[in-house]
Amino acid sequence: MVYALPNLTDDSYFITLMIFSGINAIVAIGLCILMGSAGQVSLGQAGFYGIGAYASSVLSQSFGLPVVISMLCAAVISGIAAVILAAPSLRLKGHYLAVATLGFGEIIHIILNEFGPGGPSGFGDIPALSAGGFVLTTPAHVAWVVWGILLLLMIFSLNMLNARPGRALRALHGSETACNAMGLDVVGLKIKVFVLSAVYASIAGSLYAHYVSFISPSSFTLFHSVLLLMMVVLGGITTVWGGLVGAVIITLLPETLKAFEELDVLVYGLILTLSLLFLRRGIVPIVTAKIHSLLVRRNA
C-alpha cells in the first residue's frame, strides 16, 4: 500500500527530518495526555522509548520475529514495565513522581548499558520496517508509515479525550479528591494513562530502531526525556496538538541553527528560554486562542 503513495520529494534529508519529527511526536502526544490531561509528570519517557527500541530490535533480529509482531510485543513489554512503575509511584505527586520516573529512566539506561546486546557500543543490522513481505526500503516509505501511525494515534487520542475517559482525566487534573468522592476509579485511571503513554513511547522507539538500524544506550538518556518534556511544554500541554507541534519544532530547530556553528547550543537555549517566557501557555493554545478571537470578532 505504501508503495502506491506518491513520492512528494526526493530530498531524503528532508524526509528523514520528517521521520524523526514524527517519531518524537508520537512520544510527545503520549506525554501530553499524561501531563496535560492527567496532570502527571514523567522524566522517564526515554526509558520506555528505549525499551521499545531494544525489545523490538532483539525480537526481530535474534529471534527472527516479523517486525510488526516484534513492535507489538515491545509495546506489551513497555506496558508491563509501566504498570510495575505506576503501581507504587501513584502515591507520589509533583516532584516526587518526577524523581521516581527519572530513577526509572536512568535504571533502564544502566540496564541497556550493562545487559543490552552490544553494551554501551550498541548494536546494528536491525531489520528494516516490513509487513507481510513488503520491506520499506526508502525513507519516503518509512515517512508515510511513521506519519500514518502518528495520525492514527492522534485520532485515537482526540476521540478518547473528547469522550468519557477524557472527561474523567480532566476531572482528575482538577481535583483528585473530588474524583474520589464522585466514585471515579482514580488509581485505575492513572495506571491506564501511564501505560498508554508508555506504549506510545515504545512504538516510537521501535520505529526509530528499525529505521536507523543501529541503536545504542546513548540515545535513551535522561537528556532525551527532558527534551521530550520540552517539546510538550513548548507546544502546549493542554492539547495533543501541542505535543505534535512541539515535537516538530524541537526536532527541526537544531538543524536550522547549524549556521551558528559552535554558538548553536547557546542560541538554542536562548530560543527555548524566550519561548517559555513569552509563550507560556504553549504555542498551540495561544495560536488557537488568537484564531478564535479573530473569528469571534468577525462574526460579531
Binding site: 530530498d11 531524503s12 534529508y13 528532508f14 528523514t16 527530518l17 524523526f20 550498541g122 525513507p139 526509530y208 536507523v212 543501529f214 541503536i215 545504542s216 546513548s218 540515545s219 537544531p254 538543524e255 547549524k258 556553528e261 559552535e262 548553536d264
Partner: peptide, 21 residues
C-alpha cells in the same frame, strides 16, 4: 563540516544532508 553533537540521530541526519543537499 557537520556537528553531530556526539549523537547518533544527528549523525544520520548529517550524512543524509551531506549526500542529498
Amino acid at each position: 563540516v557537520e556537528d553531530s553533537k556526539s549523537d547518533e540521530t544527528q549523525a544520520v541526519l548529517a550524512a543524509k544532508k551531506l549526500i542529498e543537499r
